[in-house]
Design a protein around this nucleic acid. Structure first.
Length: 322
DNA sequence: GGTGTGCGGTAGCATCTACC
DNA sequence: GGTAGATGCTACCGCACACC
């Protein structure tokens, strides 16, 4: 038993594993998980697709621009005290500072960045002056094509330099969340899965949960391992800092399943604790019983859908002026 | 021009927590 | 279990401004 896992989570995991091993005894993978083999130029893996009804909330671009412009502290040299003085003197937004002797240049520079519409540049600028958890950061989504936004989540054999066994991506299409999961049915299929997954997310804005610190660097590291070329460096909205800030006054526990339960009232049945994913997968490799893969795929799909819903919820709050 | 004050920026540190 | 990043705190530096 892993020492960093609570007893009850471990024993619940064992119960789930046993249940699925029994349920799928003698079954083949195709019976347990509906999907299709897909090929890239370096091999094959298994693709699982599904969809859920959902309508995504978006932030209006004019509203987003106004929200950014109304925060004088986004200019270098303006802190709480200066902001207060400027407001008293009648400077209500950054555009009005174009007429200010001292702040004209900084205001002009900031305006040119926002009006370039380049989400990457705007994000870098905001990260310089605001904590990454600041809700104002979400306004940058208005400068991206929300239809191209991809939520991502991976399942791995450990926390560092171990194979990735499942790559999950979710995007919206009309009034649906579409999930696409690339499963490595064997470690040998990891490279093909990476290649197909990165082709899907390439150049799209990303949404993740702790993905800036975990998923993306991990994928990049595996890409280098297989000599598959450069890093994924897309515009990236990591929901973890926003969730931490949101949950701060309620509980220090900011795991995705906790916030999902809090916001959407959903309790997951037969979920795999993340720390047991490697054990479940090894059980599948050892026995060829696809049962343990079923809750892994389901856990990943739930995470993806939750991520999109969480993103949408926070955008909705932004529109409401929070 | 010299000096003092206030404010903003930054660096360093400890602690915590998410991911599998 | 390793790693990266956020947060909160403190201390210090540098700049702008007001005053003499």
């Amino acid at each position: 038993m892993p020492s960093w896992l609570y007893d009850d989570a471990y024993f619940e995991g064992q119960r789930v594993k046993k249940k699925y091993l029994e349920a799928y005894d003698g079954a083949c993978l195709e019976d347990a998980i509906r999907g299709t083999p897909v090929r890239s130029d370096i091999g094959e893996c298994y693709l699982i697709e599904s969809s859920t009804d959902f309508s995504l909330s978006k932030i209006d671009r004019d509203n987003a621009r106004n929200a950014l412009m109304s925060n004088l502290r986004l200019l270098r040299g303006i802190g709480a005290g200066t902001e207060q003085k400027l407001r008293k003197a009648g400077y209500s937004d950054i555009e009005s500072l174009l007429g200010h002797r001292r702040w004209h240049d900084e205001a002009k520079r900031f305006l040119s960045i926002v009006d370039s519409g380049d989400a990457c540049r705007i994000q870098q600028e905001l990260w310089h002056w605001l904590p990454k958890s600041h809700p104002l950061n979400l306004n940058i989504t208005a400068f991206t094509e929300v239809e191209r936004l991809v939520a991502l989540d991976i399942e791995t054999m450990g926390l560092f330099s171990r194979p990735i066994i499942l790559f999950g991506a979710a995007f919206t299409s009309g009034d649906k969340i579409v999930t696409r999961q690339y499963l490595a049915r064997d470690i040998d299929e990891e490279a093909a899965a990476i290649s197909l997954f990165t082709a899907l997310v390439e150049n799209n804005p990303l949404v993740s949960y702790n993905g800036r610190a975990f998923d993306v660097p991990y994928i990049n590291q595996r890409r280098w391992y297989y000599d598959l070329g450069g890093d994924i460096e897309n515009v990236h909205f990591d929901m973890l800092p926003f969730a931490r800030r949101f949950m701060k006054s309620k509980t220090p526990d900011a795991r995705l399943t906790t916030i999902e339960k809090y916001l959407f009232g959903q309790e997951r049945l037969d979920d795999v604790p993340g720390a047991l994913v490697p054990e479940f997968y090894e059980e599948y490799l050892r026995t060829h019983n696809p049962g343990p893969l079923v809750p892994i795929v389901e856990h990943n799909r739930n995470d993806l859908v939750s991520l999109v819903r969480l993103f949408s919820k926070f955008c909705e709050d932004c529109n409401g002026g929070h």
